[in-house]
C-alpha cells in the first residue's frame, strides 16, 4: 500500500504542476482530472474508500466533465493562448513566484522537522461516514444545504440575462413607442 500511496501522490503533484503551467485550457483540465483521480487513490490507500469513490464520482466525474464541456463550448483557441501569454509576463509572476518558493521551502522544513507518528490504518466504511454525518454533524449538513442554496441563488442572479424577446402580441404594442 505504501508504494501505491507514494506513486499516487507523485502523480497528483506532477499533474497539478502541469495544470498551473499549461497554456491550453483543455490540457490543463485533463491534467486536473488526472490529479483528482490520483488523490482518489491517495484517499483509498489511507483507508477512506468512500471518500475515494466520492472524489472520482463527484470531482473527476461530474464537476470536471462539466468544466471540460464548458471550456470546449467557449472554444477559446489560439487567440486566447496568446492573450494569456501577454498577461503572464515574467514581471507579473516573478515576485509572487519567489514568495511562493520561500513558503514551499518553509513548508518542507516544517514537515521534515516534525516527527511522523507512523500510520495506523483504520478503514472507515461508508456506513460509519453516514452515521457520523447524520448523527453528531447533522447541523453541519444543514448548513451545507444553506450554502448550496446561497450558491444557486447568487449564480442565478448574476448569470441571468435580461429578457429581450417579447411575446408577439406585446411586440406590436412596443413598436409604435
Amino acid at each position: 500500500m505504501n508504494v501505491i500511496f507514494y506513486i499516487a501522490s507523485i502523480i497528483a503533484i506532477l499533474a497539478t504542476i502541469m495544470v498551473i503551467t499549461g497554456r491550453n485550457a483543455i490540457h490543463s483540465l485533463l491534467f486536473l482530472i488526472v490529479s483528482l483521480l490520483a488523490i482518489g487513490v491517495v484517499f483509498f490507500t489511507l483507508g477512506a474508500p468512500f471518500m475515494a469513490a466520492l472524489e472520482v464520482i463527484i470531482y473527476a466525474g461530474a464537476i470536471m466533465v462539466l468544466f471540460v464541456f464548458v471550456i470546449m463550448m467557449l472554444n477559446l483557441g489560439k487567440a486566447y493562448e496568446k492573450m494569456e501569454e501577454s498577461w503572464f509576463s515574467y514581471k507579473a509572476w516573478l515576485g509572487p513566484g519567489i514568495l511562493c518558493i520561500i513558503l514551499l521551502g518553509e513548508l518542507i522544513y516544517v514537515f521534515t522537522v516534525t516527527k511522523g507518528s507512523g500510520r495506523q490504518l483504520t478503514v472507515i466504511s461508508p456506513q460509519e461516514v453516514g452515521m457520523t454525518l447524520f448523527g453528531p454533524y447533522i447541523l453541519g449538513v444543514e448548513l451545507a444545504a444553506m450554502l448550496l442554496m446561497t450558491g444557486i441563488i447568487g449564480a442565478y442572479h448574476i448569470g441571468r440575462r435580461k429578457q429581450k424577446e417579447y411575446h408577439r402580441l406585446l411586440q406590436k404594442e412596443e413598436e409604435p413607442a
Partner: peptide
Amino acid sequence: SFFLSLEVMSVSMYS
C-alpha cells in the same frame, strides 16, 4: 461549523 458558516456568508457576499 465555523468554516461552513464562513462559506455561507462569503458565498452570499460574492453575489
